[in-house]
Structure formats: C-alpha cells, structure tokens
Computed example of a mutant assay.
Amino acid sequence: MLAVGGCREFAGAKTPEFLVSPATLAFTARAGGQDPPLQFLSIRETDQEPVHWTASADVPWIGLSSRGDIVPYFLGIGVGTGMAAGVYRGTLTLARPSTGDVRVVPVTLTLLSTTPLAGRWAGLQGSVSVTLTLVVSGSQVSGVGSLAPPARAVDVTGTGTNSTVSLRLAAPGDTTSLSGTFVDDNSIVATLSGPRLADLSLTLYRQ
C-alpha cells in the first residue's frame, strides 16, 4: 500500500507596518512674525506594540517636541519664522530602529511679508463654533467651513487684507456675515451677524 502524507506550510510572521501620517506638512506665516501653531504627526504601527522610534530634521528651522519615544505617539512639529520672506523646504526622517524602517515627511514653510489669512481657522464662544478653511487671491477670499448651532456647512466668500477681514458665510436657508481684525499673526477678533446670531463676538485662532 502506498502511503501518502503532507504538511501545511506556514508563512513567517508578518512585520507590523510602521505608520506615519500625514505624508507632508505645510506651514504659512509672516517673516519675522509669530511662529504658526504646531502641527502633529501620528506615529504608530499596525499591532500597536510599544516599539521605539526616532525622529530628526535636516534644517534648523524645524523643531520637534521629541526625538524619540515609543508608539503610539503624536509628535508636535513647529517651525521658526526668523528668515526672509520666501519658500523653505526641509525633511523629517522617522525611523523604527528595531526593523530598519524609515519614513520621510517633506515640510514646506512659506514666509510672507504680511500676515497670511489663508489656511485653517477656528473659534468658539459659548455654544457657537466656527471653522474656516480659506484661500486668498489678492484681496479676494474664498473657502469652506462650518457654523453651529445648528451644525451646517458654509461656503465662504469675501475680502481680506493684512489687518481686516470681511466674509460672507452662506448656508442653505441663511447667510451670516463675519467681520474681523487681526490681533496678532495667529488670532482674529471677529463679529458674527445673521438671522441666527445678533452681533456675537468671538476670537478665531489659526490652526
């Protein structure tokens, strides 16, 4: 009698993936002005084991809240503004020494001669919250955002300078006006007026 046998072949254990996000970072600020708010990188691996990581930057104007720890971790990234107006580029390198994995994150810093209005802003006063993502072309402003209560998306149009802003926040069924003045490079004191709001004051902070 012919005896036939077999065995199952098992693949080796798969190395957990080293995950860093977002893939790029971009900052905009006024040359010689206040540093923009920190942005954060999420560092983790797929099985959430407490594995060590390291981080470094290749230019002196990028600051790191830590140069190494264990996953998971939110790494704060800051930039300095003490250079002339222009566009600057640097690179963050994050590594997992136990496996040799390396992730590279490009960083772009745009320094302007005036305080930039473009970017993300958010404000909260009592139960009222506003978030805006603005694009600027000359003195014209456009963008999208949200306004609550009630929570609703808004389309943004208006005008802005390096000291003042006047915006129209349009949602289905109502429109709210926002007028504001820069307090510093990262905050705007604004007044909201509309059918659901009566001259409400709040401060918008750069995100």
Rank of each mutant, 00 (worst) to 15 (best):
M1H: 09
A3V: 15
C7H: 10
A11F: 01
A13V: 12
L19K: 12
P22C: 01
A23G: 10
L25H: 03
R30A: 01
G32N: 05
P36D: 03
L41A: 05
L41S: 07
R44P: 00
W53T: 02
T54H: 10
T54S: 15
T54C: 06
T54K: 14
A55S: 02
A57K: 04
D58Y: 00
V59D: 02
G63Y: 10
G68L: 10
L75E: 14
G78H: 12
V79C: 06
G80N: 08
M83R: 15
G86P: 03
V87W: 00
V87E: 13
V87K: 12
Y88G: 07
Y88R: 09
G90H: 02
L94C: 06
A95K: 12
R96G: 05
S98P: 11
G100L: 09
D101F: 12
D101N: 09
V105N: 01
V107A: 06
T110R: 12
R120I: 08
W121L: 13
W121D: 13
G123R: 06
S127T: 14
S127V: 15
V130Y: 00
T133L: 06
T133I: 05
V135L: 07
Q140N: 10
Q140T: 15
S142G: 07
S146Q: 08
L147T: 08
P150Y: 14
A153E: 14
D155A: 15
D155T: 15
T157Y: 07
T157I: 06
G158F: 00
V165W: 01
S166Y: 00
S166L: 09
S166R: 12
L167Q: 05
A170C: 04
P172E: 03
P172D: 04
D174V: 05
G180F: 08
T181M: 11
V183T: 14
N186W: 04
L192I: 05
P195C: 01
P195I: 07
R196H: 11
D199W: 09
L204A: 02
Y205V: 04
R206L: 01
R206E: 07
Q207Y: 12
Q207S: 10
